[in-house]
């Protein structure tokens, strides 16, 4: 659905986006992680046909973002939630959405239905006739999301949708993204919130002007170090250690006091088997979990290495 190849954008001597290549499949939630100034917003603006690229290529739904005729088709099939909500504060929530629905050429009946649907989903239907200037930050952000969806776009670009929101509003927005994922919309999520990216994204790209890495959250977590299953027992037991070594002969199992560490290849998957083996050997489990590198470890390592 979204493809870029060596996408580059320069502002004078400043390289904002440097040879970025990635692809996003239909129905995928793709996270774009990076520090401030990494080129995330610039990339989204190029993909939304708002600014031109310097070199390389980008296509959405097969249309070229740099082609004038294609750009109108692309803008019709995408929705954008910019980093600044940009609502018309003198107009009501309903009139804001109706204006955008009309600009997107959405037929009146469908427009009315979509406005009702999205305002209801986001808990704003009761406030539909209220001027948006009186809305809280969270309500404005939700309305900006509804605005981007009013014409039922196939692709939704969201630029820092939970930045500056309180935890409750952030959760509402995140839950809404998960609802949209169920509808098989392609979502391109710009964020520097690692937890958010991990919770909602199918795949994540880490950008720092250049593309540093791309993969599922799990793949990225494993990039900088092995992950381990850790079992804490009520008391140390050589019997349990021996049983584990026998059950998992190919992996390294070590004991440190009451803790047993298993260097499993896929610790999340293998933890139930490990716990079962421990219990069968007579061990009493106080805690079982996976430790090791996190998405944050990977992110910081990649971003700092590049700095």
């Amino acid at each position: 659905m979204i493809e870029t190849e060596n996408l580059t954008k320069k502002f004078g001597d400043l390289v904002a986006v440097d040879g970025v290549s990635f692809s996003v499949s239909e129905g995928e939630v793709f996270g774009f992680l990076g520090p401030n100034g990494a080129g995330k917003t610039t990339t989204v603006r190029i993909l939304c046909c708002l600014i031109s690229k310097t070199s390389g290529g980008a296509r959405i739904g097969g249309y070229d973002v740099s082609d004038e005729a294609d750009s109108l088709k692309i803008r019709k099939m995408i929705g954008l939630v910019p980093d600044n909500v940009g609502l018309y504060e003198a107009l009501s929530a309903y009139k804001n959405l109706d204006f955008y629905g009309r600009l997107y050429g959405c037929p009146e009946a469908q427009r009315k239905e979509n406005i009702r649907r999205f305002l209801t989903m986001l808990g704003l239907w009761e406030k539909k006739d209220v001027a948006t200037g009186t809305f809280s930050k969270g309500m404005k952000q939700k309305l900006a999301i509804a605005r981007a969806l009013v014409h039922d776009p196939q692709v939704l670009f969201m630029d820092e949708p939970t930045a500056n929101l309180d935890p409750e509003s952030s959760k509402t927005v995140r839950d809404f993204i998960l609802e949209l994922r169920k509808e098989k919309r392609t979502i391109f999520l710009n964020t520097h919130n690692l937890d958010e990216a991990q919770r909602v994204c199918d795949r994540i790209a880490i950008l720092n002007t250049k593309l540093m890495a791309t993969g599922t959250p799990e793949e990225l977590e494993r990039m900088v170090g092995a992950r381990r299953a850790v079992i804490r027992l009520e008391e140390p037991s050589q019997t349990v250690l021996a049983a584990l070594k026998k059950r998992f002969p190919d992996v390294d199992v070590t004991a440190d006091g009451t803790s047993l560490t298993v260097e499993a290849t896929d610790p999340e998957k293998q933890t139930p088997d490990i716990v079962e083996a421990v219990v069968r050997a007579g061990g009493r489990v106080q805690f079982a979990g996976v430790v090791g590198s996190t998405l944050e470890d990977t992110y910081l390592k990649l971003v700092r290495r590049d700095a």
């Binding site: 088709k73 019709k76 940009g86 609502l87 050429g105």
Partner: peptide, 14 residues
């Protein structure tokens, strides 16, 4: 001031 130009420019309007 309302920063509403970006979403407006993102619509299929020249």
């Amino acid at each position: 001031v309302e920063k509403s130009l970006e979403p407006l420019l993102a619509t299929p309007t020249t």
